[in-house]
């Protein structure tokens, strides 16, 4: 089948603004959009720039807007989006080159959530694991799946309007630690999220949940954090 791919191009050395270039290639409906981009880069235009690493939906490198919606190119089949494909960079982050965006502001927000286990209490007597029940583990199981691809954050209209907003991915990370019964810094994280650029900026547009390639219920996680903030109970 013939696939028509319209790709956003931007060369920082020669362009002052982005433009779209259309490529027509032969492909299969079972090809992934990443395969299509690889083909174009390999056979048509070697200057095409995009991120990819594992190519199996685990590293989260190849988040992009495909037909107007955030997706991972490696998890999206041509048959799911049709033979006319438009590929653009994710929104709300500075475009560095073609489909590559500057992820630094995204990771800066992530780091603000203290994304690591904090427990100053002495180890258990046997000196080994800090145990928790299956139920306690289940409370944050879903938010451990985040791969930091930025699909959620860059689909959020609140984040588009204000880049200072921590964004859904950072809040999901905070959720993972706040609701971990072994962690002792939930209050500290809740205080960070209570700031002006915290959870109050979430207006439940629900784009994040739909965009998440790991099917994390992002809006629900944000809702749980909001409730923990209001009640003071984790």
């Amino acid at each position: 089948m013939e696939i028509t791919v319209k790709i956003f191009r931007y060369n920082p050395e020669t362009d002052t603004r982005g433009n779209y270039v259309t490529y027509k290639i032969e492909g299969d409906e079972n090809d992934r959009v990443l395969d299509v981009l690889e083909y174009i880069k390999g056979m048509r235009d070697g200057t095409l720039a995009f991120r990819r690493s594992c190519a199996h939906g685990v590293c989260g490198s190849d988040a992009m807007r495909i037909n107007g919606r955030n997706m991972l190119a490696c998890k999206t089949l041509v048959r799911d989006v049709g033979a006319n494909i438009t590929v653009e960079p994710i929104l709300g982050l500075r475009i560095v080159n073609d489909l590559i965006v500057d992820m630094e502001p995204f990771f800066d927000n992530y780091k603000k959530m203290l994304p690591y286990f904090i427990n100053e209490s002495p180890l258990p007597e046997d000196g080994r694991e800090r145990l928790q029940t299956v139920e306690d583990r289940a409370r944050f199981d879903e938010t451990t799946k985040c791969i930091l691809c930025a699909c959620c954050t860059t689909s959020c209209p609140s984040y588009w309007a204000n880049g200072e907003y921590y964004g859904p991915a950072a809040i999901v990370t905070a959720h993972r630690f706040i609701f971990d019964s072994r962690d002792e810094a939930a209050d500290e994280r809740l205080q960070i999220l209570a700031e002006t650029d915290g959870v109050a900026r979430c207006h439940t547009a629900y784009n994040c949940t739909e965009a998440c390639p790991r099917e994390i219920k992002v809006t629900k996680a944000i809702g749980e954090v909001k409730m923990a903030m209001m009640t003071g109970k984790v």
């Binding site: 920082p12 475009i95 629900y206």
Partner: peptide, 19 residues
């Protein structure tokens, strides 16, 4: 690089779900 700029028209063109 192109600075971060999400205009109203670009934002409205995002194909979000019913929410």
């Amino acid at each position: 690089g192109l600075k971060r700029d999400v205009s109203l028209s670009v934002g409205l063109r995002y194909k979000g779900p019913s929410g």
